[in-house]
Design a protein around this nucleic acid. Structure first.
Lengths: 134, 134, 134, 134
DNA sequence: GTGGTCTAGACCACT
DNA sequence: GTGGTCTAGACCACC
């Protein structure tokens, strides 16, 4: 039983983005397998207590990316599409987040060592329970 | 040479935030020293070709945070750095960035060790020094 | 009944500051509880007959301080109270008011004992409760 | 030798107001006696490293209040005018400062007891060295 | 000259 | 509907 989406209110990332990111993460970590069904728009909207339009917006983005596809009559399922990225492309995607973190952390008085420890903890938490602790 | 602020338009981070961050960073890394003057609101606005109110907004935030102080009629200067936020608050502010980075990095197949190294490089690039003295 | 904000024009404290202070005070005294909604920017602006930007400025400050949080498209609510400022910073902020009061009071011939009594009365009038629980 | 005015930059009270207040305080506490000379405008301006206009503005206010008077050819001196205030008038003057302090302190999480102690300390400091510690 | 405040009106993203 | 950002222009106090 995969793809249990959870959103956190009072967080600055938009709800639709949280949904998109969680599907991405589930697909990447193998928590959700190709061909597996994703919750229906109105079902997920009801479960998360959000506007169906918000879920629809998230699914539209996922569909455009080719990560999910609508199988007529069977709702939407995860594609088996697997991105093959070059090292430089992976670098390019993670770099700005590294930069943001480093800047903010330095401003707040953290040093590189503290950061590394916290980051390791964060990664460990992700590996243990991808869908719950996220 | 002190506090040359630059902004990039067409970037998704607001102008006023770019200004705030750059002053913060300059103060944290020691690029700008306590007592040093910051550019006048109107002067900086003219230089950056933005509305003076935008600069004023950035400076107001910096002033509220206690990072700069205004000497009426004589411009603003950097304050002596002091610890303003509790440890738990600093943690709370850096946590979401850690989380974002960890998620994205895991998706891209980086491991914690690689991340730590890259993060250290980023910090070094910012000119970080032992945290307490910053 | 929650968070009825009132402002007095013709008073030297800025409107936006009156708003900020009243929300702060309501949160500190327990008049407004965590999770409770605050009036919308446009709604409050209309009620107070001021410019929406003035209210927005007040709310932005409150948000930066972590006292309220915005849930995009759904308005803003009070956060759980947490200690954000270090003790030394809290001290630094209350010190000038103490100094002003002491100077003025000494000039007027009050002694410390009288002042303490009056100050206790003021605090009681604000509905203060044991500091840590506030 | 009395009336050694000192100002503190980086404080939000205007310089001219600091001067006015200090003369008031010195007169009220007896640090400066009636008939005593006050520093010349340009002398004081030079000593404080401020604009002579600023000192002039402060002196103008003091003169309007009748606290100092210009003795032709001898500069300005303190008047022997002694205000006799009713209790209600004294109350009226100290009340707003009490209120401000109480509000700010409650917001910052101080309780009445802590405040009283700090206020006593402040008063003691004023009594000991009116012109130096101010 | 400086910063501080307020107004008016615009555009955007999110729900 | 909501908040977030930016612009333009005004008035004030202080130096």
């Amino acid at each position: 039983m995969a793809l249990r989406i959870k959103i956190q209110t009072g967080c600055d990332t938009p709800i639709y983005r949280q949904i998109v990111d969680q599907v991405h993460l589930a697909a990447a970590t193998g928590t959700a397998k190709p061909g597996e069904a994703v919750p229906s728009i109105r079902g997920l909207a009801e479960q998360l207590v959000v506007n169906p339009n918000t879920v629809a917006k998230a699914y539209a983005e996922l569909r455009n990316e080719g990560l999910i596809e609508s199988q007529q009559g069977r709702g939407m399922t995860l594609c088996d599409r697997r991105e093959v990225l070059t090292d430089s492309e992976r670098m390019r995607r993670v770099r700005p987040l590294l930069s943001d973190l480093a800047k903010q952390a330095v401003m707040l008085g953290f040093n590189a060592q503290e950061l590394s420890r916290m980051l390791k903890d964060e990664c460990k938490a992700l590996g243990q329970r991808p869908s719950k602790g996220a």
